[in-house]
Simulated scan of single mutants.
Amino acid sequence: MAAELLLLLRAERWMHAFLVVAVMAATVVPFLAPKRLGVVIPAELQILAILFIFATLFLGEVRAYYERLWWWDLALHATAGLLLGLVGFLIVYILNENDLVDLQMRPSFVALFAFFFSVGIGTLWEIFEFAMDQIFGLTMQKPMLGDLSGLTDTMWDLIVDALGATVMSVTGWRYMKGIRNGRVDTWVSRFIARNPQLFGRKG
């Protein structure tokens, strides 16, 4: 990425150079989070976050994978739905299980919150894409299936966001029901075990 940045600066492609700098900075965030926030993030989740940022900004925008591979954007939105669903689940699960918070929510409500949290963030991102296209003349909303307006692209993005969010919400619901099965369940368990302070418990 450093070599790519030098080439972009030489070619005066300022927007892409900015994106590469953003990717390089974002890859550091997961490693700073434990020190800044006092939260221990499992290595698998850190790697997933870094790969997602790299695939979205560097490969997608700088290397134009969005234009080269028609399914690239859909795959990333499905992944985003999964990751955001996991974040939404953990937010409510932490509150639900914290010994210092007098709050008990049913697994179905926690799962529902995780779903709408993920879809809501995905919707805000689509609004951001629309605003960037309108204000700065970008093409973040890509033509798709013969639709030059970008509406079809936006709707398919939201559909795969919802599908990813559904998978994670169901997984979270199964976890709270005691059905521990799968790699995601292991990640949630490790996150909880490594961050007892978030639950009002002593480590």
Rank of each mutant, 00 (worst) to 15 (best):
M168W: 00
V29Y: 07
V184I: 10
M144W: 11
A64T: 13
G137C: 13
L198G: 01
L86N: 08
Y175V: 01
K177I: 00
Y66P: 06
L37H: 04
R10G: 04
V29S: 05
V92A: 09
K142W: 05
V184E: 05
L37I: 03
Q46H: 09
L84T: 10
A25M: 11
V184S: 00
A49K: 07
V28Q: 06
D102G: 08
V160M: 08
M168H: 00
A55N: 09
V28W: 06
L148V: 15
Q104C: 06
V21T: 08
D73T: 13
D99E: 14
G164Y: 04
Y66L: 08
A2H: 09
A75K: 05
E61M: 11
W70T: 15
P42Q: 09
I47T: 13
A26S: 14
V23T: 14
R106Y: 02
S169L: 02
G38S: 03
A111Q: 02
L74G: 11
W14R: 04
G85P: 03
W187N: 07
V21N: 03
L90F: 04
L158S: 05
D153M: 12
L74D: 05
R63C: 07
I53R: 05
L48D: 11
T123L: 10
A11K: 12
Y175G: 00
L59E: 14
F136W: 12
E44M: 14
A2Q: 06
P34D: 07
F136I: 12
L83N: 03
S108W: 03
L5I: 13
T186K: 13
V28S: 02
R63P: 01
M1D: 09
A193K: 11
R106H: 04
V119S: 01
R68W: 08
D99N: 07
L7W: 02
P30D: 02
E61H: 12
A49T: 15
W187V: 14
I53P: 03
S149N: 10
K35L: 13
L19S: 09
T166R: 04
A49G: 14
E44C: 07
V39M: 11
A33L: 15
W70F: 15
A26G: 12
R106I: 01
I179D: 02
M1L: 09
F130V: 13
L45I: 15
H77N: 12
V23P: 08
R106D: 07
